[in-house]
Design a protein around this nucleic acid. Structure first.
Length: 388
RNA sequence: GGUGGAGUGGCCGAGCGGUCAAUGGCAGCAGACUGUAAAUCUGCCCUCUUAUGAGUUCGUAGGUUCAAAUCCUACCUCCACCA
């Protein structure tokens, strides 16, 4: 069997469960975390360093690889696994998030109404047929359709692929959200048809739940994914303006999604978010945050205030302790806070690399702890160790 | 010794009579970031104050003027060239 999802344990008190997700490139335990390697590279770490940090699965992006180096080149190079030197399970996102982010900027910018800062929109038009982009690299125009996204993802060759959707913004009205959701459903059907047409047994597809913050829309979208031949379910779109609303939106999906399929929560990844959403039945997560904030000087630290520590802060200048004395990653077993502070202060790229290693290792440690906690029905206690 | 040029906030460097507590950049201090156009972006950055505001600043000391970082004089220091 090349693909499977086996649920091995269900938490009696919530939707939390343990599972084994099997792909042609290996089996991962769930809940698990998928690291973002958008342009065929997890920023700051080599595939070997990802392995050393105990990572199981990574993700790349259809849109970015479409622009450069192009799907045909990657196919010619033997596919994405071979191209980037990662032989484990891999996921590709469809480009749906870029339909949002290239028009609105970051999630925080959009929610806080700041608009897209410092750059022009490069999403030109969204229509029933697809989305028109202008490459930020050379101005060349691209038209991404559901069929095109699937075709590109087939050429890239990730194990787990995703239907094209429109990632709905927060600041749109209910009517737009509903129409957008319906279009994403039609895009999902087209994605599924294209996948079936090209199916070679090496890939499986996620359908995406949209519907914004509206419970009735989420229910419709969940049932739509449940009733289609998707291998798995992903929850996407606007999840609200704050954490509580995000938790509520995810929770309102739990009763309506297919109970036996893997469920992925798109774009979420803080400690508290993982603990909370695992209870709503989320099996996998992905987020740019571990590697992005590492490049900005922040270490994710178990049990720390706000879950993290800013190594650029002057208070760490003479600190001889490791970033996290309970962490056994390469960074924490070899380097001090003071040294990492120095690397950031002097602009040495090694600082970003060391913190990226630590944050990746920490997310993997978190997921192991979450799995252990579900197995022993101790989620509440373990959460208190991680989140204060 | 002579001639010319220059001395501005931690550093570099604009400003050359009022709209100057003084553009920028760097450094510094903190913050944001959740399917990555992010090694990005934001705020603070003379002193006191939450702020309005007040008080001291542009080598030093005088002077001109209603008004000086900006003009004049002397001195100090540095640079260039000539001896």
């Amino acid at each position: 069997m090349t693909f499977a999802f086996d649920i091995t344990h269900r938490d009696p008190n919530s939707y939390a469960r343990l599972g084994r997700l099997t792909t042609p490139h290996g089996t991962i335990e769930t809940p698990n975390f998928i690291f973002c390697g958008t342009k065929a590279s997890v920023k700051g770490l080599s595939p070997q360093q990802m392995r050393d940090a105990k990572s199981d699965i990574i993700l790349s992006n259809t849109y970015h690889l479409m622009l450069s180096p192009g799907p045909d080149l990657i196919a010619e190079m033997g596919g994405l696994h071979k191209f980037m030197g990662w032989d484990g399970p891999m996921f590709t996102d469809s480009g749906g998030f870029q339909i949002f982010s290239l028009g609105y900027g970051s999630v925080a910018d959009e929610i806080k109404g700041r608009g897209q800062r410092h750059r022009k929109k490069t999403i030109l038009k969204i229509s029933e047929e697809g989305a028109a982009f202008q490459s930020y690299l050379d101005g060349k125009k691209f038209f991404l359709t559901p069929e095109g996204s699937i075709d590109i993802q087939r050429k890239l060759g990730a194990d787990l692929i995703v239907q094209l959707d429109e990632c709905t913004p927060f600041h749109v009205d209910r009517d737009y959200t509903a129409k957008s959701m319906e279009m994403s459903m039609r895009w999902g059907d087209r994605s599924l048809a294209e996948w079936k047409r090209q199916d070679d047994g090496k890939q499986r597809m996620y359908g995406i739940v949209q519907g914004g913050v509206y419970e009735d829309l989420r229910k419709i979208s969940c049932e739509w994914t449940r009733d289609r031949d998707f291998f798995a379910t992903a929850i996407g779109g606007s999840l609200g303006s704050d954490k509580q609303q995000m938790y509520d939106v995810v929770a309102m999906c739990s009763p309506h999604i297919h109970p036996d399929r893997p469920v992925h929560l798109l774009g979420i990844g803080s400690f508290i978010d993982v603990f909370t959403n695992v209870r709503s039945g989320m099996d996998t997560f992905d987020c740019v945050s571990p590697t992005r904030i590492a490049r900005h000087g922040w270490a994710m630290v178990k049990g720390a205030p706000k879950e993290r520590m800013n190594l650029r802060n002057a208070q760490y200048m003479k600190d001889q302790d490791p970033v996290d004395s309970t962490c056994d990653c390469h960074t924490c077993t070899h380097h001090s806070r003071g040294y990492i502070h120095h690397l950031f202060r002097t602009g040495e790229s090694l600082g970003m690399m060391l913190l990226s290693i630590h944050n990746v290792a920490t997310m993997n440690r978190l997921m192991r702890a979450v799995r252990g906690a579900i197995a022993t029905n101790t989620l509440d206690q373990v959460q208190k160790e991680w989140v204060i």
